[in-house]
């Protein structure tokens, strides 16, 4: 992950990593990372994610990007889509 931080297309790389994390760490075996649109609602009908997935995503974001989402009030806004998550990670990641 450290190498990603140095790449030119940082936001793009964050998004790709997030999609891979969602498929692998949330055991979404029937979905390919490419099927996740940047603006798709992560906790809507399409993927069927739930509250454990939400806390797992918070945990994985901390583990992979070192970015903490303090509580679920904040989490609800941040975890809406790949775009909202990537923007939050970019804004909070230490250089």
């Amino acid at each position: 992950m450290d190498s990603l931080a140095k790449s030119g297309n940082e936001t793009l790389d964050i998004k790709e990593s997030l999609k891979t994390i969602i498929c692998r760490e949330l055991y979404m075996e029937d979905i390919d990372p490419a099927q996740i649109g940047d603006d798709d609602l992560l906790f809507g009908e399409k993927f069927g994610l739930d509250s454990i997935d939400a806390v797992e995503l918070v945990f994985q974001v901390k583990a992979h990007f070192g970015v903490a989402i303090r509580d679920m009030k904040e989490g609800r806004k941040v975890l809406q889509s790949i775009n909202t998550l990537a923007a939050y990670i970019e804004a909070h990641r230490s250089a």
């Binding site: 760490e25 055991y27 454990i52 797992e56 945990f59 994985q60």
Partner: peptide, 9 residues
């Protein structure tokens, strides 16, 4: 502390 929520559950 590295137990993930899914693992813990």
């Amino acid at each position: 502390r590295s137990f993930s929520p899914i693992q813990f559950s």
